[in-house]
Each structure stands twice: as C-alpha cells, then as structure tokens.
Design a protein around this nucleic acid. Sequence first.
DNA 1: TCTCAATGTTGACACTGTCTACTTTGTTGC
DNA 2: GCAACAAAGTAGACAGTGTCAACATTGAGA
Lengths: 201, 201
Amino acid sequence: MPGLEAKPLKERVVEEAFKVIDESGVDALSLRGIAKRLGVSHQAPYKHFASRDHILAEVVARSFRVFSNHLENRQRSSDGFEDLGFMGRAYLEFALTKPLQYRLMFNTALPDIKDHPDMLRESQRAFSILHERLQSVPLSDPGDQIEESAKHDAMFIWSTLHGCCSILHSDVVKTLDLTAREKSTMLERMMIRLSMALGSH
Amino acid sequence: MPGLEAKPLKERVVEEAFKVIDESGVDALSLRGIAKRLGVSHQAPYKHFASRDHILAEVVARSFRVFSNHLENRQRSSDGFEDLGFMGRAYLEFALTKPLQYRLMFNTALPDIKDHPDMLRESQRAFSILHERLQSVPLSDPGDQIEESAKHDAMFIWSTLHGCCSILHSDVVKTLDLTAREKSTMLERMMIRLSMALGSH
DNA sequence: TCTCAATGTTGACACTGTCTACTTTGTTGC
DNA sequence: GCAACAAAGTAGACAGTGTCAACATTGAGA
C-alpha cells in the first residue's frame, strides 16, 4: 500500500526541518541532526537535497508561500486605503505569531538566489501582492514626480513594517526592556504614522 | 621595547575578526581561522576570549561604538527638525557604506545579552542618541495621548530607517532587480514620507 | 531475467568549537 | 639570586558538522 502513511523521505526531511527551526532556530538546522531524528543514515537526505542550502531554500520558499497566502486571506475592504491597512495588520500578525519563520525569510543570510529559482519566485510573489494592491490606491504624492511611484511606496511600506517587526524581534531590542503593552502601543502608533506618511484622504 | 609594535594578541584577534567579517561575513568567523591567520596555535585566542560568542560580542560592541560616534559627528542644525533629518541621513550613510558592520549589529543572531554587558551598554547608547534628540523636537501628535511618546516615535523612526536599510541589504531584495539609481530614489522618497509621518511644521 | 536508475548505508575527510594537560615566560616575594 | 606563581601559548583529544566516494538494496522496464 504505497502512499498510505509512508511519506517520501524528501517530504519528511522538509517537515522535520521546519520543526527544528521552530524549536531551536535556523542555526540548529543540520542535515545529520534531521537524519538522526528521522532514524535514517546521515547521507539519506543527500539523495534528495544537494546540500544544506538546498534544504534551507526549500524551507524558505515554503515560508514565503505561507506568508503570501496569509496576506491574501486577510480581512478585505472595498475601500482601497482601508484594505491596505488590513494588509498591514495581516503582515504584522504573521510576523508576531510566527517569528522564527519571519526571521527565516527576512533576517537570515539566504542561500544564493541564483541557485534556487523556486525560492526566488515565491519571494517575488509576496512582494507583488503588496505592490499590486498599492497600484490601485490613490496616495498623496510626496512631490517628486517619478514613474514607478507605486513600487517605491511599496518599498516604503514594506520597509516600515519590516523595520518594526525586525526591531521587535531583534536581540537589540531586549536591550530596551519593552513591555508587551508598550510593544503593541508602539505598533498602533506606527500604523497611525504610516497613514500620515501616505496621506490618507 | 615593549609596546612598540607588538600589539597584544587580544587586540590583534579583534582586528582580524573585523577583517574576516568585512571580507566574508560573520558566518566565516572562526577562532581557528583567526589563529591561523595570526600564526598562533588554535588555542591561543582562548586565553583572551572564553568562546566564539565573546569575540563576536566584542566586535559587535565596537561596531555600536563606531556607529554611535558616526551619529554624533553628523552635520548639525539649530533647527531640531532639520537636525533630525541630518541624523537620519547619517544613519543611512553608515548602513550603506558599512553594510557588513550594519548587518552585524542589526541582522545577526547576537550572543545572549545577559552574558555580554559591554555589548548591551554600547547598543543602548546608540538608541539613546536618537531618543534624546527626539525629546526636544516638537512632533505632531498622532492622536492617542500617551506618555513616553518620544520613545515610541524614536522606535518608529528607527524602525523605518532600519527597515529600509535592512531590505536594501537583504538577500530578498536581490529578487527585485533594483538599480542603484532606483535605490537612492527610494531612500529620498522614504525620507520625505518620514517627514510627512512626523508632521513637520 | 537482465539492466539500470533510484534510494539508502557506511566510511572517510577536513573543518569547527571547546575541554584538558603541558610548556614557556615574565613578575613578584623572600 | 632564586623559588613560586600566574599569565600566555602549545599540543592533543573529542564530538559535532557538511560533504565526497564507494557500496548495497530494491523495484520497474526491456
């Protein structure tokens, strides 16, 4: 009875990699460790992945896919500007509830993109969701007339959201002794300031 | 003639660590590698640093010191708001001209702060420079009356700047095929939007 | 049935951080 | 001057890592 409960090793390796990362972070990810957890020889995973980087690339690609889906399944609004706000909140929600996956995507030295086209495609899709949404929202123009302004605004929004999440996650912030309440207040304030920056009508 | 050109090993280890990081990134940092480059035994650095993390913490602490100094040596203005702008540009300048050091501070899994008080102190100083500057600049209030608003605004500004730099540095952005000109345009636009967010008078 | 490719195992190599034990060296107290 | 001692450097070992090469098993197709 093939396929009944015998998942292919390749799949089990990826799942186990996610577990390890969720438990102990990406640094703890080792091919041999995974092999041991799965009860196979230390070389078995190599039949399915050329290197540690290839496993990592697969995990990152899937994380981006989950992330993109999370953004697209957000609460929707017919008002473009409000809808943008929902997207921002969906972004924050993901970053806060799945910090390790978030860090994996944005805070890790990723394998060379040229060697991992799948990973590339998935990450581009995540950005394009924001980019496309933005193209149909009339934002105030900050003065300098440039084409591709939607792209730059997308980068600005992305940067701000990412910056906030990144800082909240970063080891540096442990430095500052923020309470959970302070963090959420800070996020609210950031959303307000972000609206101001974009000039809501 | 002691001290003429015989720098203590501890100092040489740190300098060599900086070189390695500048050349090949933090992942390539290894105690044994440094020892080899310095022509000493692989255990010699251990007489001065308890572990790899302790070397890393020292390097990070010094990076923060350099960073703080760079912020304080910025172009100054008597107008608080303009001065804030100068500080922002100083921040960006550092991040763009010393990307590896920047990533080291903000994008790396740092050693546990509890074990490295020096590193902690230096990182706090960097943030307090921005924080203190902000306390004497009258920004528009975004509505919710809270004390400690300067702290939260500092976090917002920091986040935005950091987000931009982080995204520009990140492997993810190679995905998007940005030209150098586009990047600088994006940074300019970000500074403008940041002003809008803070409500310049 | 033979073949062959896919899959998994075993062994080896070079590299890493870190522990322990030893040697050298320079300074201090007597 | 010399004994003692701590600091600094060396040498060897161990477990862990990624990765290469050689071998075994197995299952499907010709």
